[in-house]
Amino acid sequence: MIPRRTVFVRSDDRPGGVTPLEPVAEGAAHPAHTLDWRNSLAGRNAPTRGTRRHPLFRIRDELSAPWRVGLMIVGMLAPLALWLFMSTSSSTSLLVPSPAQTWEGARTLWHEGVLTGDVWASGRRILIGYAISMAIAVALGLLMGSFRSAESFFEAPIAFMRYIPATALVPLMLFWLGIDETPKIALIVIGSVFFNVLMVADVARNVPRELINAAYTLGAGRLRVLRRVILPHSVPGIIDVARINLAAAWAILVVAELLAADQGLAFRITRAQRFRQIDEMFALLIIFGIIGIVTDLSLRWLRNQSAPWARP
């Protein structure tokens, strides 16, 4: 039997207590029941301190890959199941095409040879319009976020414009600019630029003061601080702003296409409506969703690539 001269061992005669720290004699063998103690602690009924919740319910904790992927798949299948249910159940008066019918609708559009043209027509408008919008937003937003003077000057008119629904400007734009591409692109710009400017300004305002100060004491002038501190620090934020407001650009484009266009995804939806082709309408809606998810994921990827330092 090894004498009870161990370090931090819960002994039987002192229930719940811890024996005081005693030096273990030089060269003494490690007491055997230290191991028992460890084993008993690992056991199921061992007393514990603190709480440890399942990863599913922990704030900001990493989830294991099976859980993550599993939840994603369930998240995708659930709406699909609902759709399937609605398309087969006769209890609802809504006419819902089944997934198979929708697929057929998509194939019809494809064989008509209009689909790529429509995607490209709408995509091109978004691309040009949103690029202009972001260019203005970055220039003006960085300025407003960096200089109180610019902020004071631009804040009121931008807030005013932001509250005019861009959709309300559709008739005016068509009246002024005709019915070709220009009014649609103009509407995309107007519909998104004010949100973008204010949000980019916010991003720029969030550049820590100390970083700007540090750059000054290292010899950078104001323009250099803008270019070498405020801009790089804002890059991930700017990409996020672009990502979040892109949906607004699509919304306004759809309105513009509904009123005046001979090509484009939304135009195609109105056509389908005229011929009561609900399957094609569904196919087009799903295409909107897919384009949205793809651009969203790409912009996320771009953000992470361009700013590894900002990754959590």
Binding site: E210, A214, G219, H233
Partner: peptide, 19 residues
């Protein structure tokens, strides 16, 4: 009246450029 490279500073909070 303003900062300049003639006065180098080490800040209490380090203020390193994170990127």
């Amino acid at each position: 009246v303003g900062p300049g490279p003639d006065r180098g500073m080490v800040f209490q909070g380090y203020s390193l450029f994170p990127w």
